[in-house]
Write a protein that binds this DNA or RNA. Structure first.
Lengths: 213, 213
DNA sequence: TTTTACATACGTACATGAATGTATGTAAAA
DNA sequence: TTTTACATACATTCATGTACGTATGTAAAA
């Protein structure tokens, strides 16, 4: 069954990305063949090679699917941080963890990036993109910490550069622990309790948490 | 050149594990063929199939290489924790990060487990082993936190179970950020500064840090 | 002490299958 | 009529597993 119109072709493309996402997560990237994806999507490999140059290209396009959502979250973060940086960052991190474990598309792609692909060879591009994304994210966090320091919300002796790296580590690590042992923690419900040690170590009491303490 | 004696055969086995370690890190697990490993080790695939059942078996044997060192560190941790749990845990975490980024064998294997393998299919066994190791590690951490609470070293409102998960996340995450962006941080030198936010959020001032504050 | 009977520790060769890329065919859309 | 959006078919390249060969070690029998 050949899709004819441009809209139908776009449908096919999205269907391929969707299918690849599921199969990559279930079987791993290198163990999922283009034939697997084509069959599961109800087309042949010809369709894949029409829309994408090769497997790596398909993989990268799949990763780009979540870029808009992530960017939107960061845009909101930077915008709202003016008022109360610590509290905004706190809410942002909680929402981030919540989103990752409740939006299936996000869960799968984050899961693939953490546990289902090897950052090497033809995936080098994805690796560089990931590192670059980490770098930008770190810069945003660092600026937020600097701004929080100006507001007097930061604990004494905290270095914004290092604190931003720690926060990245805390977030990535929690996601990974959850992916490896989902039975051990409910990331959606426990996000606050899992993040609070770090936050109470970095921000002054009362500056980041909603409740009075 | 055929190794004849038992000692020479053991040499071959170790050489294969060593070579696999390097190639898995450089090229990724699934993109490294047994022929690659054999050639780099100066033998043929016949030698590999003599010593190991298949690639997954070789992979697991390679992971087991670092098990003794890790176990020894944990044994020391539990032993020394009697005196001062918070301070012992602090030193242990710092040493852990230091070891991971300074002992090449450890760096490679941890790097492989984080960025160079897909936990799926025939690697399922490695995945389960990893999850099980995480579980045991979490139990040890949790008990340490409970003991610290008895000693009055824990901050009020900290739940040992959740705090142990957070710490696992913090450690794993820092290692991963370092692996992804080694140029951004010197894990060996900055371990203390990267871990201190978490520790000062969990333990009472003065209970974990060597210096008086 | 020599010989015998195996076991070790690989090397070699082949059979098989899986995955990729590409060239070509084709029907409908524009 | 040309281009689009695929399907089909083919060539080729690995990677794996296994069967088999073979030289050496080794322990016991003779």
């Amino acid at each position: 069954m050949v899709r004819r119109t441009r809209e139908e072709a776009e449908q096919t493309r999205l269907q391929l990305l969707e299918t690849a996402q599921v199969l990559f997560w279930e079987k791993g990237v290198s163990r999922t063949s283009l034939a697997d994806i084509a069959q599961a999507a109800g087309v042949t490999r010809g369709a894949i090679y029409w829309h994408f140059a090769n497997k790596a290209d398909l993989f990268n396009a799949m990763c780009d699917l979540v870029q808009p959502e992530i960017d939107e979250m960061h845009r909101r973060l930077c915008e709202e941080a003016r008022a109360a940086p610590a509290q905004t960052l706190w809410r942002h991190c909680c929402e981030m963890l919540y989103a990752i474990c409740t939006i299936p598309k996000l869960t799968r792609i984050v899961g693939i990036l953490h546990l289902r692909c090897e950052y090497v060879g033809e995936m080098e591009l994805a690796h560089l993109a990931n590192a670059e994304w980490l770098r930008e994210n770190h810069q945003r966090f660092q600026r937020l910490f600097e701004y929080a320091a100006d507001c007097g919300e930061l604990m004494p002796g905290i270095d914004p550069y290092m604190a931003a790296l720690s926060l990245q580590g805390q977030l990535r690590g929690l996601v990974e622990v959850w992916l490896l042992r989902p039975e051990a923690l409910d990331l959606a419900r426990d996000a606050e309790r899992l993040l609070s040690p770090y936050f109470s170590g970095v921000f002054r009491p009362g500056s980041w948490h909603g409740t009075t303490d």
